[in-house]
Amino acid sequence: MRTVRLYFRLLGAHFRSLLEYEADFLILAAATVLMQVVNIVFLAALFAKVPALNGWTFWSVLMMFGAVALAEGVGSLFFDGMWSLAWQINRGQLDYFLVRPYPVALQSSSAAIGINGLSNIIMGAIMIGTALAHVDVAWTPWLALLGVVLLISSVVIKVSINLATNAVSFWLASPTPMFAFAMHQVGDLARFPLTIYPLALKAALGVVLPFAFIGFFPIAFLLDTGQSRWIGLLTPLVAAYCAGAAILIFKRGLRRYESAGN
């Protein structure tokens, strides 16, 4: 509990300096909203001519886009510092993190607030909400609770993948998070139903870097779309696995940390 409270303390410390650049914040927020609006226009235009994509309708795909936007938004709003890990390693910034009594990964991830995450969270929530209003699900309290668990799990998966791929910077000497950024982009593939891709991509997005568990599998379960919908129930397990793997990779990386020469 103290760890969580302290996390928000560390993150919140940057909030005031963020407000100094109000115009910047507005531009970034507007750009993020614009990107999501373009996505929605694209989906609407596509599904105006096509009833479904492998059994997925406009609303169900919109919900996947929303889930990815939401998970990404949480990642940038609360854990944006992860993206500076490569830089922190390269400049020896971890030296001081290592001598403070607080988890190093959390000191790193709280080093910045990605305020554009806020608009992504809002847009994602609107997309999911609108989609839910238009799909036919027999809601029960249990299913609703499960839905919340799935949503939290999908956020955990996204953040864990961010941490794991950024922690690769302990092995690569680059001062920019090339690898993590490339993987983040690959993750965009998982906004579409996994079934449209060739086997190799299915394996990559479903198993190796399980981006498909952020939107596709849990939503397939909730909306009862496609075959093997039970896989969606594995989402919390996948989330636990991803979080564990990410922490392990980070810890292994930390042992390799060599600081920076003077």
Partner: peptide
């Protein structure tokens, strides 16, 4: 620990706030 070549202060925070954050961490 103090490394003269490197600061542990937060670059975007006033010194008092940096010290207060450290107070809370410790």
């Amino acid at each position: 620990v103090l490394f003269g070549q490197r600061t542990q202060l937060w670059w975007d925070l006033p010194v008092a706030e940096s010290l207060a954050v450290l107070r809370d961490i410790y």
